[in-house]
Design a binder for these strands. Structure first.
Lengths: 189, 189
DNA sequence: ACCTTTTCTTAATCTACATTAAGTTTTTTG
DNA sequence: CAAAAAACTTAATGTAGATTAAGAAAAGGT
């Protein structure tokens, strides 16, 4: 049931079968259809989501009414609006399935209990939060270093198959420019 | 000696005196003069730094040779190039004192030991990494929502005293524009 | 297979911000 | 306190990328 998550956890810490069972009792598994919403702006974020297969995206609608994608999560990544999730207050974000997506969810009222009962999970989350922090430092450097065109070419060379998988307008806003400009770049070669 | 850090830790978890002593044996305290480097590009990042008083900044030099400030750390914030620190590989970044700064440092070879011996510190770091992740989500939203001028006015209204404390060219690059443009904005009113 | 909706493209025009360069003010240092 | 260095300002010119608008292609539903 939760083997994808167990496997991921095991690349960081060793969980016993007993620990896996305790953990399993706190998790839920869902399948979301493409375009389904896991969270909408104004709602309170109930869960932190681990992507087993598929792709979720986190986005908001800016002052001009345009969707701005701030994060993607593919296989083995967690995604949520942390502020809304932790403090149970209304979110500024949407979480939506970019394709049919299998997720494992932990609800907020179970989240702290999980750390109390499973110290190894405390370490696991500390380690994946470190990875997130590394990714954020890299992303800021990336945004501040390169032009729009360079950002696209770089991203495309790192994740060519992912670029095929998702609509271009989502990628454009993630990289910080408009879909029209992305079209222009792509036409160039 | 390390009371500023103990106080900060205690806002998240309760440390006993014994635990404080163990922790103290792994820490070092330093005073850096304004403009002193704690880390330079190409060096391996030896420590993670907690700012007791003063201000550190993380920056890199972009392709055009311009300094790009990606992070500030003031009282009660940790700062380091995480990738270089965790994997002991050469850094792309500089860490520099923006003013005379008192720091508490934990070296990399002590870092994992700290978590082994002090599970409460595992929780403490998980919690501050969560705070970092929240801050990153907010920052990306902020960068994608507003014009340069709006970003400056917003930042200035949130941290008016901090804006006075640091050179404008550092702030300009942190907010994603040039010092000349910041001058122009400020002249407007 | 057809119709609707969504996504992508093209091209003309526009603008926020960068660049360059010179001068001025402030801070630092001997 | 004088000289040098660092930080800031002003203004003219340039450009990456936004905006607008209309049409084309692809995807999805029945």
């Amino acid at each position: 049931m939760y083997t994808a998550l167990y496997n991921h956890i095991n690349t960081f810490v060793d969980l016993s079968n007993d620990e896996r069972e305790i953990l399993a009792s706190m998790l839920k598994s869902f399948l979301f259809k493409k375009k389904a919403f896991l969270l909408e702006q104004g709602q309170i974020c109930r869960s932190n989501y681990f992507v087993v297969k598929g792709c979720l995206r986190l986005y908001f609608i800016d002052i001009k009414g345009v969707e701005q994608t701030t994060q993607f999560a593919i296989e083995n990544w967690w995604i949520t609006d942390l502020t809304s999730f932790l403090f149970q207050k209304p979110s500024d974000f949407f979480v939506q399935a970019a394709e049919d997506t299998r997720v494992i969810a932990i609800e907020q009222h179970r989240y702290d209990e999980m750390f109390e009962r499973l110290p190894k999970i405390e370490k696991y989350f500390r380690l994946i939060l470190q990875k997130n922090h590394q990714a954020s430092q890299r992303r800021i450097m990336f945004l501040y270093s390169f032009t729009a065109e360079e950002r696209y070419r770089h991203f495309n060379s790192l994740f060519p198959e992912f670029v095929q998988r998702i609509p271009q307008y989502m990628l454009a806003s993630y990289l910080g420019f408009t879909p029209e400009f992305l079209s222009k770049i792509r036409a160039k070669k």
